[in-house]
């Protein structure tokens, strides 16, 4: 499957995401420059983490006006698979591709630490390689990850099973301490109603190799590969890959800001 990683000025997890998709998951991967309205025929668009446009105005608020975002919107509306990680999640919210908004973390601190998240719904394009209730250890790194939605919207998200991941403790219990940033309903990751767009604050690309302390992030990428392969009718669902392919060099960064 072909993955595209969007590069905005200020993205800083673009290479990590590219590396994991290409070298760990063994998928064809390309960078997509924010100024070029061309998705290069990818099967999936990933909006990586970082601080696009310096987080000016609000996190993700300026990136949504990038030429590529109009294409990402069209792609998503046509059913294309879109994953937003951290700043990518914030951009999807600002662009209206996902409902709700982000507030500053409840303790007003930039949080950079491993957290546990629980799979709430494993019947999705982003979690089918995991089990319902499975606890994943994946790091976060953000200032604005305190998810907010008005009560009626929250009720709708719950009703439609759109909440895919919640912050929990190591045993999978939802506690106030485990909900480090103060998100309503402990939301760590949610998808749109159609199920083809997911945003998550934890960084699965930082937890996809043993040497980095956790391989749990692979569940998300493998789920997406499973979904795309099933959609294309090429292969049957398979489990998370554990062997690591040889590393091929990453391409140089494209364009200038």
């Amino acid at each position: 499957m072909k993955f595209g990683v969007v590069v905005f000025p200020g993205s800083n997890c673009d290479y990590d995401t590219f590396h994991v998709l290409q070298n760990v998951m063994g998928q064809e991967t390309v960078f997509l420059w924010h100024k070029e309205p061309d998705l290069k025929n990818v099967d999936c668009v990933v909006l990586p983490g970082g601080f696009s446009y310096g987080d000016y105005l609000r996190s993700g608020a300026i990136a949504r006006f990038s030429p590529i975002m109009a294409e990402v919107k069209k792609f998503a509306q046509a059913g294309g698979l879109v994953l937003g990680i951290c700043n990518g999640f914030q951009i999807l919210l600002e662009a209206g591709l996902l409902p709700g908004a982000m507030l500053r973390n409840k303790n007003l601190k930039f949080l950079c630490q491993p957290v546990y998240i629980r799979i709430e719904n494993n019947k999705t394009a982003f979690s089918n390689a995991g089990k319902k209730g499975q606890v994943l250890k994946i790091p976060i790194a953000h200032f604005d990850g305190n998810y907010y939605a008005p009560p009626d919207l929250l009720a709708e998200l719950e009703k439609n099973n759109q909440i895919v991941f919640r912050y929990c403790d190591a045993e999978g219990q939802l506690t106030e301490e485990a909900n480090v940033n103060g998100s309503l309903h402990s939301i760590a990751g949610l998808m749109n109603r159609e199920g083809n767009v997911l945003g998550m604050m934890p960084h699965p690309e930082r937890a996809a190799e043993k040497i980095l302390g956790s391989e749990d992030g692979k569940v998300i990428f493998q789920s997406m590969i499973n979904y795309l392969e099933k959609k294309a009718g090429t292969r049957k669902k398979k489990k998370v890959v554990t062997t690591r392919p040889a590393i091929s060099p990453l391409p140089p960064l494209i364009g200038t800001c």
Binding site: L103, R104, N105, K106, N107, L108, Y148, P150, G182
Partner: peptide, 13 residues
Amino acid sequence: SLKPSVLDPQGQT
């Protein structure tokens, strides 16, 4: 500014 219904931790601090 934040809506009255939205928690403002910065204001509280």
